[in-house]
């Protein structure tokens, strides 16, 4: 019982620390998840993080919140998901209310504005780094690279939820066609690495990172 409480508190505390960095659509938290949850706590592998964000995308609600609930559930069931949800919500709750009360005072304060100008740029760097991290597990052959490259411009015109559905459908169709043509398709990177093919994988993400 005590061990479980300790675990739940650890989950809560980990997400509490990640909460203040969920700017810009929630992806900026990925580098932190990698540091705190994958490397430090070893609760998940980076490949799991990719799949969790894929699922978090497909559910209504904010991605940061969805992903936290997913991860909490993966670590420690329903109780874990509650701990993660409260952990991710509480800091932003406190911050947004304090800013709300201070708003009139700090709205035009040059120092706050100056700090935020730089911090926003760093948040952009965090999102780009997240794209590299996730891209590394998602892209391992020509078809997956093509989906990524085609997906970005399409997103400027079509609602993300339809793009997600198109992506799922593309996966099924591509695998089906390849199978009909007699190719054996490797369906995730772990298997590819087992076959010794990880080298061309890391090469194939290079041009993309510059594009992002």
């Amino acid at each position: 019982m005590n061990d479980q409480l300790k675990m739940l508190f650890q989950i809560f505390w980990t997400f509490f620390k990640i909460g203040p960095v969920t700017f810009g659509g929630g992806y900026a938290m990925i580098p932190l998840i990698e540091k705190e949850i994958v490397e430090k706590r070893e609760w998940l592998k980076i490949d799991d993080v990719t799949d969790i964000f894929a699922l978090a995308q497909s559910v209504p609600g904010a991605i940061a919140l969805n992903a936290s609930i997913f991860i909490g559930h993966r670590i420690s069931g329903v109780k874990g998901s509650i701990a993660a949800m409260l952990g991710i919500l509480l800091p932003t709750f406190i911050i947004v209310l304090s800013l709300g009360m201070l708003y009139m005072l700090i709205k035009d304060h040059p120092m706050v504005e100056a700090a935020f100008t730089s911090v926003r740029t760093t948040i952009l760097a965090l999102i780009v780094y997240a794209a590299k991290k996730i891209g590394k597990t998602a892209i391992f052959d020509k078809s997956t690279l093509c989906i990524v490259v085609a997906g970005v411009p399409i997103l400027f015109f079509i609602h993300p939820i339809f793009v997600i559905l198109i992506g799922m459908l593309m996966g099924v169709i591509i695998v089906w066609i390849k199978r009909k043509l007699g190719y054996f398709t490797i369906l995730d990177r772990q298997h590819k690495e087992a076959d010794g093919g990880s080298k061309d994988c890391s090469l194939s993400v290079e041009p993309l990172e510059k594009g992002g």
Binding site: T144, I147, I154, I164, G167, M168, G171
Partner: peptide, 18 residues
């Protein structure tokens, strides 16, 4: 198969978000 197509889309979404 679904995840084979979905994972790259997550990457596109992150680049788009950036």
């Amino acid at each position: 198969s679904i995840f084979y197509g979905l994972r790259p889309i997550v990457t596109s979404l992150i680049i788009y978000a950036a």
